[in-house]
Design a protein around this nucleic acid. Structure first.
Lengths: 199, 199
DNA sequence: CATCGATGTTCAGTTTATTAAACGATTACA
DNA sequence: TGTAATCGTTTAATAAACTGAACATCGATG
């Protein structure tokens, strides 16, 4: 910091105090709530610049500043440090990415290449279509996934949206805020699965 | 802060960012662990001055600094903000401070003037003496109190020590580290009470 | 293709936190 | 009664956080 030479601006050097990765936590929370750095800064009463630098771990905010920022969304200081970030790896699997695991008369195509750390398995079964799901915004503790059979699905997970068409599939940690919407004119069919709450 | 005039050094002005009282939390934790500001600073790798200023709420530490300090004792960042400080109001009641509530043949003298927020009531009964308690350092979740009948008791609660003589009494949140010690040459007698763990 | 709006990042300047070294007060000990 | 040790607080100097305003990039609009 004392030498603002152009070569000194290393990208996230993971220095001696990278102990907790506050930046990543803040960024994920902000993105989950669908706020831009400026929008959050406005709410918090700080500048957008400092939010950028915090997220890049280029500075360690004072707890006063961190508190102001967290007041932007309903998260207490204690929760911020406790919060274990829901894994947000690959969410959308295109039709071509499904792995064929059953090669008989009954076509079974698996969603997700490896099942490590997964609570369940999703299969695309070529049978009668699944249920129709209206718009919802639930946040129960589980994982869920599914495949679109017919119609067009607009899936929103953590401030990010996709339009899924027949053959496309999804899988995500449902602690992330999510939402299903039928944006087509024909009925929407999905094959979905969800980890049982008692399992 | 910008004007270091002698009149401007107000004692804990409770300014616009007194939101959380980090200073008091830190000071109490430090005193509970029986550390001086310098001893803690040495462990944490900071200076004693900054600890003083934090405890006086004269500055808002960066979370990096706060983390270094909390590493001094086994407390995580999340716990620091969650921790509800055990009430540490009056601990020692001198013989003259006991309130006489029963005025009959059986002398009942109450420990503590008001019982608001208390889990139990302590009475000094003029009967056969209580049990003899050796040195201990327990930290069970309860409140306890008692009265010294005979002998000399050295009571240590949260890095603070008193010597109690017959007639003196005590009452404290036993989540605070505490310790009884017989420092006299005659047998020690105490009337003590404790909230039942199932009540 | 231009331009507008919104995004995240960077930079000089200012405010603030942090250091290093003092100060005054208290306790123990000779 | 001094003096040495330790306590918490304070202060000038320094390092770092934070501001305000720029920059570069991207997507949408005309």
């Amino acid at each position: 910091m004392s030498t603002p030479s152009p070569a000194a601006t290393a990208p996230a050097p993971a220095g001696p105090e990278a102990e907790f990765n506050i930046g990543e936590r803040l960024r994920r929370i902000r993105e989950v709530y669908g706020l831009s750095q400026r929008a959050l800064a406005r709410r918090a009463g700080v500048t957008n610049g400092i939010i950028s630098m915090i997220e890049l771990n280029r500075t360690s905010p004072s707890v006063a500043t961190l508190k102001k920022i967290l007041d932007g969304f309903p998260i207490a200081l204690a929760d911020f440090f406790t919060f274990d970030l829901p894994a947000q790896d690959q969410v959308v699997y295109r039709a071509a990415e499904l792995v064929e695991i059953g090669g008989g008369a009954l076509s079974l195509r698996q969603v997700g290449r490896n099942l490590r750390g997964r609570a369940m398995q999703i299969l695309h079964e070529r049978i009668a279509p699944g249920a129709d799901t209206g718009a919802e915004m639930l946040t129960h503790e589980a994982e869920e996934g599914g495949v679109v059979i017919r119609g067009r699905l607009e899936l929103t997970v953590a401030a990010q949206s996709w339009t899924l068409e027949p053959g496309d599939a999804y899988y995500f940690d449902s602690r992330l805020p999510h939402r299903f919407r039928n944006v087509g004119d024909e009925p929407l069919e999905i094959v979905s699965a969800c980890t049982p709450p008692s399992f």
